[in-house]
């Protein structure tokens, strides 16, 4: 399984949740915390992320930066 992760600019997030339904790994959820704009924001809820970028594609507020396990490290793992 390819490993990935996302960095989330939580202050820009408006909690629209569009990324949640776009995520094939079901690894995003809203926090119960509130950002300075008054929105509940998104966070990773598990480590199932594969770095597929779907969340970043549909995000209206460009909050995601996406990382993925490099190919060389995958080879090493094998």
């Amino acid at each position: 399984m390819i490993k990935g992760t996302v960095k989330i600019a939580t202050e820009l997030c408006k909690g629209c949740e569009l990324c949640i339904s776009a995520c094939p790994q079901d690894c995003l959820a809203l926090t119960n915390n509130i950002n300075l704009k008054g929105y509940k924001f998104i966070q990773l809820k598990n480590d199932a992320c594969t770095g597929c970028t779907n969340c970043a594609l549909v995000c209206p507020d460009a909050v995601f930066t996406v990382f993925r396990q490099s190919k060389s490290s995958m080879k090493k793992a094998v």
Binding site: G4, A62, S70
Partner: peptide, 12 residues
Amino acid sequence: TVLEDLELVYEK
């Protein structure tokens, strides 16, 4: 160890 090997695949 995984984090160290991550490469950027998307940024705005």
